[in-house]
């Protein structure tokens, strides 16, 4: 997310568009980015630290952005139906 003190022109544009669509009561909008990284195996402390380093070096610019890292479990893979079987 852009740091609170950094102007966010895109968020401002969204804030300006909401009342035009009839939405009221929103006092501020900040626009950020979300990256979803899929990793092999278990998320150990070491893996998590590596992801934090990725966030600090490439994914974000610490001069103007803050970031948080959160773990989400991918839902169990949807089983693929074998086309040959489904025809029978």
């Amino acid at each position: 997310m852009p740091k609170p003190e950094i102007l966010d022109p895109q968020g401002k544009a969204v804030l300006g568009a909401l009342p035009r669509l009839g939405f009221s009561g929103v006092t501020d909008v900040r626009q950020g980015k979300r990256f979803e990284l899929e990793v092999d195996g278990e998320i150990t402390a070491e893996v998590l630290e590596q992801v934090r380093q990725m966030a600090a070096t490439l994914l974000s610019n610490p001069v103007i952005e803050d970031f948080t890292v959160a773990i989400e479990t991918v839902p169990a893979a949807v089983s693929v139906v074998d086309p040959a079987e489904s025809r029978s």
Binding site: P2, L7, P9, Q10
Partner: peptide, 11 residues
């Protein structure tokens, strides 16, 4: 160099 460059304020 210090600082960063962001989208123009007038967009």
């Amino acid at each position: 160099l210090p600082g960063a460059l962001i989208r123009n304020d007038h967009r």
